[in-house]
Design a protein around this nucleic acid. Sequence first.
DNA 1: TCTTTTAGGAAAAGATCGTTCCCTAAATCA
DNA 2: TGATTTAGGGAACGATCTTTTCCTAAAAGA
Lengths: 204, 204
Amino acid sequence: MVQRMQQMARPRGRPREFDVDQALDKAIKVFREQGYNATSIEDLTGAMGLASGSIYKAFKDKRAVFLAALDRYMRLRNDQIALIAGTRGTARERLRAVLGFYVDSAKGIEGRRGCMVVGSAVELAIVDREVATRVGATLARNEAFLADLIRQGQADGSISGRIDPDDTARVMVCLTQGLRVVGKSGRAPADTAAAVDIAMRLLA
Amino acid sequence: MVQRMQQMARPRGRPREFDVDQALDKAIKVFREQGYNATSIEDLTGAMGLASGSIYKAFKDKRAVFLAALDRYMRLRNDQIALIAGTRGTARERLRAVLGFYVDSAKGIEGRRGCMVVGSAVELAIVDREVATRVGATLARNEAFLADLIRQGQADGSISGRIDPDDTARVMVCLTQGLRVVGKSGRAPADTAAAVDIAMRLLA
DNA sequence: TCTTTTAGGAAAAGATCGTTCCCTAAATCA
DNA sequence: TGATTTAGGGAACGATCTTTTCCTAAAAGA
């Protein structure tokens, strides 16, 4: 049984010397800053600490590296937001925490580095169907997530029942994506609490 | 006198056969769809109806074409918004009209085509200082424009005096830029009036 | 009319980029 | 242990992209 698991863990030839996820994290950093087209294989080898041959052993081509990085980026970000929204309190308080996370992500160096979803949407959505699909799915998921949070707030009494959860969530998604655009130019709101207070006005 | 004006109008050698602004409009279309790095000189020659040599006669290099296109795009868009905001009515009504224009810009084919300011911010702001300067200036101008409109509304009584015009305008700019990101993936709000109603909640 | 200046256009040059190839290294299988 | 399989790494290749060059065309100046 243990031997079977070891066999499954070590497939055949020479084992990979680097951790794929760690390498993807480096790739994510580069793609967030420069986007897809401006990032050369040389940029990736430098950031990931690998030779070009090794990259092409692990990934079909540059686009596959990007898609893997995008998937990982979206997953990590989703996990973070789910964690923040999982804290105690009314749905309104949890929604406030989520919005605060978005505002903070848009500030300073992190904001300048940018968002891979926004970058993918702007640079590639029109020419790469697979990227467009993923971006659309993430935006839809974020929208549904926020709408659900709003509905929870309407159920626990912390959010007005007069607003439409879906329409409001959709506008809120625009706000969060816009924060990342503005963050790229270093003009994101400096005062997180103040910005979140204003954003919370969308809830009636 | 007439001869002097003709001299000024026709400088020296062979006159240019194409209209620079018309050519830039074609370039804007390509840059909006594909961004800077994905657009080749061949793309530009095709869209602008010029040979590469002619482009390099009129512009220093590809980057100069992009900067000229960006400047023209920003100017045209600014003019449109100023026109819309110049209509009669309370400042609140004019602000509503401006927001409606932003929402409409994010919808359908126009939305998929994208915004050159957003594209520039996301793709180039971190690597091109000159682009970053222009993007920052436009965002600041938009912010000041919206803040002024809010102040007018507070003066004419159509907008609550309890909100901070600058902070609110800053969040509103994020919303408008985000609309363009979401529009790239075809997920912009379908019902303009409903989306504007929700956005107007930011005014208290 | 002849010279000078600038534009149009296509081909060539020069640079860069993505990908493949080849050799060595490290693992498993027989 | 020898064969097989896969990874690491760097050079080489082929394609593409930006820019320059060169020749012709069209205008003004003398």
